[in-house]
Design a protein around this nucleic acid. Structure first.
Length: 294
DNA sequence: ACTCTTCCTCATGGCATGTT
DNA sequence: AACATGCCATGAGGAAGAGT
């Protein structure tokens, strides 16, 4: 849209794009235009990816981004959006679990929205699925009153995923308890792609509504509003590491392809304070004894 | 209250480079 | 040769704002 507005100055139509002889220089001009309008680096990088695709499907040969002028112009913007490694705090997963337990006590009083929030939160904690993946999931009942969540992962190159939740001794935080409650209230939620059916609107909840429901629960925990729904993944993974899960366990659990790297970069929110404490601890006594002896 | 757009964040395959 | 690490391009995810 933005490129269209920029391109369609008087006397120039989108059709004229086909007549361009040197798409690269047009792209460069457009970047300069964006920079002059103080666009963010994110915006510029995203725009150029899209425009390159636009030219490609219009029949031009692929725009090279390596070793040419476009590369040098983009370098600054690409560098600016790289993830900065820093220590970020994360709320404790235990607080979320506590709220789930509290809500379970008064399960008949809470609203449909809050109920949905609890189920999404519980599912995300124990499956490490993303919100969008949870929202397009279907539920299947399995043996010994366990549940299977069947979804597909579009991010990356993974296909379908089936997560199996079994009964667990921590009943009121478990996905089995929450899913059973949710589905028993309305059996038609067992129908494929109908898991998040809302009786209020008579249709499945959207990702947007799911996000809002989760934020309602996060509010009950007094989690800072700046945290996103994905932070539940972070909190879950951070706790996994804290309780001593091995690299392999975290890998399998999170279904990351390059688990350790991705987790270190985006999910492990350890402040390292505990490790610093331990580094700083040394045996004072023996030092003193040595002095006395000498 | 809903949909669409914009901005920022997460994630990966494929390749390049380094080490044993 | 096998194993290990790092970089790049780019598309999906999520939040917030705009428009209706």
């Amino acid at each position: 849209g933005q490129f269209g507005t920029y391109w369609q100055r008087p006397g120039r139509t989108l059709r004229d794009l086909r007549l361009i002889e040197d798409p690269e220089s047009k792209v460069v001009k457009y970047i300069i235009h964006l920079q002059q309008n103080e666009s963010t680096s994110n915006h510029i990088v995203e725009n150029i990816a899209i425009i390159a695709l636009l030219f490609k499907v219009s029949g031009f040969k692929e725009i090279e981004t390596q070793g040419n002028i476009l590369y040098w112009i983009m370098k600054k913007n690409v560098a600016a959006i790289k993830k900065v490694q820093k220590v970020e705090p994360i709320y404790s997963l235990d607080n979320l679990l506590k709220v789930l337990e509290n809500q379970a006590q008064k399960i008949d009083e809470i609203s449909e929205n809050a109920l949905m929030g609890c189920i999404i939160v519980s599912t995300m904690i124990f499956s490490v699925l993303r919100l969008a993946e949870v929202m397009r999931a279907s539920a299947v009942q399995a043996e010994y009153s366990s549940w299977m969540i069947d979804t597909s992962i579009w991010k990356g190159d993974d296909g379908g995923v089936i997560v199996h939740f079994r009964k667990c001794k921590h009943r009121y935080t478990s996905s089995v308890f929450w899913l059973s409650t949710w589905i028993n209230k309305c059996r038609s939620r067992l129908i494929q792609n109908n898991l998040w059916y809302l009786t209020k609107t008579h249709k499945p909840a959207t990702v947007n509504q799911g996000s809002k429901a989760v934020h309602e629960i996060m509010k009950l925990v007094n989690i800072d509003l700046s945290y996103t729904v994905t932070s539940i993944r972070s909190s879950s993974i951070t706790k996994q590491i804290a309780i001593g899960a091995t690299k392999q366990q975290v890998n399998r659990f999170t279904r990351h392809k390059k688990g350790p790297a991705t987790v270190a970069r985006f999910y492990n929110k350890n402040t390292n304070d505990e490790l610093r404490e331990r580094l700083a601890t040394f045996k004072r006594k023996s030092l003193i004894n040595k002095k006395v002896n000498s």
